[in-house]
Structure formats: structure tokens, C-alpha cells
Design a protein around this nucleic acid. Structure first.
Lengths: 139, 139
DNA sequence: ATCCTACATTGGACAGTGTCTAAGTCAAGA
DNA sequence: TCTTGACTTAGACACTGTCCAATGTAGGAT
């Protein structure tokens, strides 16, 4: 993700220690953390980083299209660094963890014209829900 | 929706004025209100109804399968009274209004077995996003 | 019709998530 | 090295939702 930092710098981003750490956290594992989880991880490397900065930085990464915001459960949003590959999500209804999944076909084409009601439809998200193997085992 | 109340009473629900009003609000327009909007509407008819009761009642209606909980934006959840007809949602990215839409085919079958990672997949929601005619005109 | 009691409601405190602001700090160009 | 405007900080705040103890009441029992 070091090229991410380069790309952002090219767009006029000021490169600070805080932003670097947030980007590194997102790059690290391919898990979908909540903002506060990102903050916790970031604090391990840069203890004085503030919650507001993490929220700001995540918001910027989202509007720059580098990260996708996923809100599956009405609780905390999660951040998905895998923004450049088209994919959908599989969510555990019990523990909330998210996996990226890839579908057969294009879900956009499943919505017939008369069902579009004059909207300019530009995006579709598909979310599968179920119980993950871990939670099944723990039950 | 008066048969809703009957159905619920058959399942041992105690029929109170508060529950009746919440059910009527949901039945009224076919809009997808947030919990606090339901509370506001309900207060017009029953001023002393409390927020906790509205949240409780909505939660019960959801677990009884009479109403669907929709969280599209990570802000307030919205409640969809149209639970008995399989459908998906079309959301305006600008003003947030929601329309029910009906799809070709079953989106569950679009997720190949190897992409299920041992989950017991039981549910799928598809959300289309775009700009509604109103917002397009206003732009 | 009245009584009982388990269930429902109330209001207010609390918790989680996210936003805002004023003051201080610093990256990076001159 | 200096300057400056963008960035960060801490903490207050707002919104959504949950919880609890005290109070009220629907509906079966009598």
C-alpha cells in the first residue's frame, strides 16, 4: 500500500505520521475493521493519535475511493481496503465479521427496467448473511 | 393491517393502545420510517407514548417477522412493513428515500459454493443506489 | 363486574458511534 | 530556515439505541 501513499501525495495529500499509520493498519490484515478498531491498532504504533484524526482520515480515504465503507448491521461501519476489486460481502449474523465474496454474473442486470422508477441506478451492493464456521462451532 | 393485530393476538401478544398505534403508523403510508420517526408519528395520536416502547415494539415486530429492519446508511435503521413479499431496495443516494423493487431470479444462487467459506448462508439483501427522479430534476 | 398478576409502559440514565470546534502543531514549498 | 495553511488534538456534543426500577394495565379467573 506504499503506492497508495504515493498516489495520495500526488493528489495533494499532506503526508503525516498519523495518516501513514492508518493506511498501514488497513493494509496489514485483510480484515474489515471498525473505525474504533482502526484507532486501537493505530494507537499501538502511535499512542497519541486521536480518534478524530482516524475518523477524518477514513472519511478522506472513502471519498478518494481508496477504501469502501460497509454498514451491514446498523452498528459501527467497517472499512474495506479492497476497493479496486469488484466484490460483495458475506456477514456473520452472530459475530459481525465480514468476508469478501465474488458472484456469478452482474447483479445490476437483475433489476428490470420497469422496476427502476426513473432512478439513475449506478451501484448495487449484495450482502449475504449467515453463521460463520466459528460461531457454528461455538454454539 | 387490522389482521396483523389479530395475528399477533393469536400469538399471545397483549393488545395495548401503544402497540396498536405503532402498528397503525407502519400501516399508514408505505414509507420506511426510522424508529424516531415512528415515535413522532405515534406521539401525534398518543402523546404520552415513550421512546422505549416504540423501540421495544418495533423490535418485537421484527422478531415476529412482521416487519423488516433496513440499515442502508449506517445511521438510523428504517422499518419496512412489507415483510410478506420478497423484495429488495432501491435507495436514493441524495435524499435517502427507499423504494421496494422486485428482481429477476434468486440472488442466493449467484453465490457459488466455494465462495461460502463454510458459512450457513440464510439470507441475502440487494441494495441498488442511484439518484431518484426528484433529485435529478432538482439538480 | 371485580380482582389478580404477569406482562407492558414509562422516563431517565447510560453506552456506542460519529461529528464538531478552537487551539496548538507541523509538512513542505519558498 | 521560515512561513503558512493544512493537519491534529482533546473534549464536548449529538444521535441512535439499550437498560432499569417503578408504575400501570389487559385479559383471564372468580
Amino acid at each position: 500500500m506504499s503506492d497508495l501513499l504515493e498516489r495520495l501525495r500526488g493528489r495533494g495529500w499532506r503526508l503525516t505520521a498519523q495518516r501513514r499509520v492508518v493506511a498501514e493498519v488497513l493494509d496489514g490484515d485483510h480484515v474489515h475493521y471498525t473505525a474504533d478498531e482502526v484507532h486501537a491498532k493505530a494507537s499501538e504504533r502511535l499512542p497519541e493519535i486521536s480518534r478524530a484524526t482516524v475518523y477524518n482520515t477514513l472519511g478522506e480515504l472513502v471519498s478518494l475511493g481508496e477504501v469502501i465503507e460497509v454498514s451491514t448491521d446498523g452498528r459501527a461501519k467497517r472499512y474495506d481496503p479492497n476497493a479496486h476489486h469488484d466484490h460483495q460481502h458475506l456477514v456473520c449474523s452472530r459475530c459481525g465479521t465480514i468476508r469478501d465474496v465474488h458472484l456469478h454474473g452482474d447483479p445490476l442486470s437483475a433489476l428490470p427496467e420497469p422496476e427502476r422508477y426513473g432512478f439513475e441506478v449506478s451501484e448495487v451492493t449484495v450482502t449475504y448473511r449467515g453463521i460463520c464456521p466459528n460461531c457454528t462451532a461455538a454454539a
